[in-house]
Design a protein around this nucleic acid. Sequence first.
DNA 1: GAGATATGTCGTCTTTGTATGCAATCAGGA
DNA 2: TCCTGATTGCATACAAAGACGACATATCTC
Lengths: 108, 108
Amino acid sequence: MPRSFHLGEFEHLVLLVLLRVGPWSSAPVLIEELLRHTLRPPTRGAVYRTLDRLSEKGFVTDRSEVGSPERAGLPRRSFRVAPAGLRALKQSRHLLLGLWSGLEGVLD
Amino acid sequence: MPRSFHLGEFEHLVLLVLLRVGPWSSAPVLIEELLRHTLRPPTRGAVYRTLDRLSEKGFVTDRSEVGSPERAGLPRRSFRVAPAGLRALKQSRHLLLGLWSGLEGVLD
DNA sequence: GAGATATGTCGTCTTTGTATGCAATCAGGA
DNA sequence: TCCTGATTGCATACAAAGACGACATATCTC
């Protein structure tokens, strides 16, 4: 997939979930949302790795907040979908919608 | 993703395309259809490997026809989506539709 | 402090994705 | 019939993605 922008399956999910929960969310929040939608509980390691990769690709922007102990358990790292990430999401969506078109009956 | 049924990104595409082109299609036909929908030209090797894996997982059924030289260049191996494959496709679709819901404006 | 809980990192392994190249098959013409 | 080139199937090798689990660090409560 060296073709620059192809999202892996899990990368796709993580990116989508990040878009849902909103800008500057932390990994635990993403994990919680993932759990709500899929039944599989992803390990934190998997999520962080994926976020790293998405970050390297420029699909998400991340920032670390060191000195803001506002509330209990405040995360140090938060993420948001970058423009390129949004583009990739749109692209995947269009592709799938196109492939599904005409199969509505078969696929429920 | 050892979780039995998770489709990889490309596996998903190949399975979907197989569903589109119809039961007992050959790899070249799938490749052609893939080209029509995605802009990336997958190599034959990639498609065959993916079909092998889908077959191992029970998502596609394949058969080899040896003695049917009906027409020019008739393929020897053809594939169809197995029930488990259809289930996996439905599942992926439901998941994505769920994650997209509410984001229509953002994702076009 | 001390213990419990929450958060982030990393090494390692398995699974997927991709490219390359060889072997077999087949069509069509010399 | 025997080349020749195109098509098809597959093995091999390797890169990227996904997953797990152990470890480290922080934070809260007491």
